[in-house]
Amino acid sequence: MPAPELWLLADSRLPTGGHAHSGGIEAAVRHGLVRAPADVASWLAGRVPTTGLVTAAAAAAACALVGTPRARGEDASAPVARGVPSRGERSVDWAPWDTAISARTPVAALREVSRQQGRAMLRTVRAAWPAAAVDGLGTRPHQALVLGVAAAAAAGTPHDAAALAVHHLVGQVCSAAVRLLGLDPLALAGVHARALAEHGPVVGKASDAGTAAALADDPDLLPTATTPLPEVLAVLHARSEGALFAS
């Protein structure tokens, strides 16, 4: 059973700044590419296996790198003190991992978005999990790294971190679609649930890739999938005026 703290990380009310972002869907709505719940599902079908996979794998790697026994998968059934790193925890050089995420985020506007959300989440993690292994992340880390560290602090596993990353992406898109298009929240809740079920294999793939990269201490092993259209739209969105969401 997941630790209760992981439920907090999955709660949209957690102040991490995610409510200010649409997962890229605002630009798609503005250009007439998304109009109905089915379009939202199609948008997610392109985003989750690409950008979602990369982000989820990075979060899984960060969780594994923190070094708690549970995060390393040494004994997932062993009790872990909530938010307390293990005695054997090693220091992590986050710089190569930060660089790897930047390299997999070719659009400057999206790199900035990732760092904005990472900074907001970092403040929350420091307040909620004071013992979290955030040393060395810097003041503006990528969101995926902070999420992985937070998941480990909440007694989670790399798979949990990957699942949270996908959940955050899907939740951002669905909640933004309600606000942007006035769609039925119940219909979008259905889209959200079906997307999480449909893309369950992405979570497993991301968890495996992130854990393997962490064990090898090689960020080059992280996935490199991408989607050009949302990246182009992100550039247009960054230059637009009157946008409801920051991204």
Results as ranks from 00 to 15, higher is better:
His199Trp: 09
Ala238Glu: 06
Gly148Lys: 07
Thr50Ala: 14
Gln172Arg: 13
Leu147Phe: 09
Ser42Tyr: 01
Ser207Leu: 06
Trp43Arg: 02
Leu181Asp: 10
Leu65Val: 06
Ser77Arg: 12
Leu164Arg: 00
Ala246Pro: 00
Ser207Trp: 00
Asp11Glu: 03
Ala76Arg: 13
Asp184Lys: 06
Pro106Tyr: 07
Leu221Pro: 02
Leu169Pro: 06
Pro228Arg: 07
Arg126Lys: 12
Ala162Arg: 02
His142Lys: 14
Val107His: 03
Ala59Gln: 01
Trp94Glu: 09
Leu14Asp: 04
Pro185Gln: 08
Ala216Val: 11
His237Glu: 12
Asp93Cys: 12
Val34Trp: 02
Thr51Ile: 05
Gly210Lys: 00
Asp98Ile: 04
Thr16Ser: 15
Arg35Gln: 15
Val173Ile: 12
Glu241Ile: 09
Leu53Ser: 05
Leu221Ile: 00
Ser77Phe: 14
Val146Trp: 01
Ser91Trp: 01
Ser22Thr: 09
Ala45Arg: 08
His237Gly: 10
Ala243Arg: 15
His159Tyr: 11
Gln143Phe: 14
Ser86Arg: 05
Trp94Val: 14
Val113Ile: 06
Arg82Ala: 15
Pro85Asp: 10
Arg111Glu: 12
Glu241Val: 15
Val125Ser: 09
His192Ser: 13
Val125Pro: 03
Val84Cys: 14
Ala20Cys: 05
Asp220Cys: 02
Lys205Cys: 03
Pro106Gly: 12
Val232Trp: 13
Asp218Trp: 01
Thr224Leu: 07
Val173Glu: 01
Gly182Leu: 10
Asp11Cys: 11
Val232Cys: 12
Leu244Tyr: 08
Gly46Cys: 10
Trp7Gln: 15
Arg123Pro: 01
Thr51Cys: 04
Asp218Ile: 08
Gly156Val: 03
Glu198Lys: 14
Met121Tyr: 06
Pro49Ile: 06
Gly182Arg: 03
Val235Cys: 13
